[in-house]
Design a protein around this nucleic acid. Structure first.
Lengths: 221, 221
DNA sequence: TTATAAACAGACTGGTTGTCCTGTTTTGTC
DNA sequence: GACAAAACAGGACAACCAGTCTGTTTATAA
């Protein structure tokens, strides 16, 4: 999160890209934490230290701003946390396991579950506006396609013969999305690990009582 | 959805339960379709044909109204569409299959995906207020518990020996939640069926190209 | 009937919202 | 330097929001 280097009086320096980035940073964070409708552009202006005129110059409407967040930030977040790791992994299953583990570890470390950016906005905006819906649907589609492609690559290497790539990809994305939904609501990342283990082939019942780590609110809202 | 029997002038009949029900009907539908923040109580008043004084008498704040919707309606919806069918089914897996099929069929028939009421509100309200979060988390918990109990019953009957009840329940709920999330965003129920089939043990790749039924907007918003 | 509370009506308010508009400053180009 | 366009400042505004308030009507119970 970039912050402005203290405005000394008298002089001004135009920095359109920097300002745009600052607004997107703030909007992304606020949409994630509070949601679209609960985030007022007044709050965003204050948080980004930006005037109304400047904001309006870069994003004429709130919808335009949200659309930019979806297309530039949410898509990138899915790419970074899911698509790239899966592609880089030795196999699809390995990639999925890695992502679940990484995310669960992150949540446990920061002690607060903000939820999946894509799902958060998808629920609030999919029915609100067709432009939102289309943009969000495209991200879901790319997400599943990346996993399905990886499964197909596994299959060409002789593995994962028994499964359907598209269906498995849908299952993986759905499981993660739903698990994050519960983790957010319960403020407990344990369900993520539960889902991952249940997803593994030949899952064995847990011997000992599993630990419950109820997280405490801390991170900035 | 109950509607008022045309207000003839001069006379008035107090019907507190009926009025309360009408408000909850309208609020439930609007929260589902537009979300909490996008639903103004003014709109709700108009839709329920209720005055401000009457609404305030039954629900002093918007939060109180939403809490009532969650506790009385959303919980009942999960009970009706998930918990009861699973308990009534011959086995947990059979119940899950049945629910997925039923819901998918309903969506295809009505041609529009409004999403899961619980998840819709959970995403928007979990971080907004601890009371909301607690109420919503309780519903998720009961949902998973019902499935886990059914699995345990199966295991006592000698079936499903290889799996962990709690983890499997988490997987089932997460898969459904995530699938509905995608179905809503894509306005296509196909992903629900994909997830169900991928969830089945020993899932076999689909032989033919699966059909895609992109739904058209129709239902009342 | 009379008292009492519950149920409802409807106007009102203080604050917020997103957007617009006019003007000023900076920046790039010739 | 002259000029035009982009970048920014900041006030104004109408619409809307949730909630409050006072008053009236209906039901209940004695």
């Amino acid at each position: 999160m970039t912050t402005r280097p203290k405005a000394l009086p008298g002089k001004r320096t135009n920095d359109p890209e920097g300002l745009r980035k600052r607004v997107l940073d703030v909007a992304e964070a606020s949409f994630q934490a509070r949601g679209y409708h609960a985030s007022s552009i007044g709050d965003l202006m204050a948080a980004a230290d930006v005037t109304g005129g400047a904001l309006h110059h870069h994003f004429p409407t709130k919808k335009a701003l949200a659309l930019a967040v979806v297309e530039e930030r949410v898509a990138a977040a899915v790419e970074e946390t899911w698509i790239a790791p899966v592609q880089a992994a030795g196999s699809a299953r390995e990639g999925i396991r890695k992502v679940f583990d990484t995310v669960a570890a992150e949540l446990e470390q920061q002690g607060f579950v903000r939820g999946c950016p894509l799902n958060n906005l998808a629920h609030e905006l999919s029915l609100a506006d067709p432009d939102f819906r289309t943009a969000l649907a495209g991200i879901f589609s790319a997400w599943r396609a990346a996993i399905a492609d990886k499964i197909r690559a596994d299959q060409q290497a002789g593995r994962e013969q028994g499964i359907d790539p598209q269906r498995f990809a849908a299952l993986a994305v759905a499981t993660y999305s739903g698990a994050m939904s519960m983790a957010k609501t319960e403020q407990d990342s344990a369900v993520l690990r539960d889902c991952l283990m249940a997803l593994e082939p030949g899952a064995v019942p847990a011997r000992a009582k599993r630990r419950r780590r109820v997280l405490l609110r801390s991170g900035t809202l």
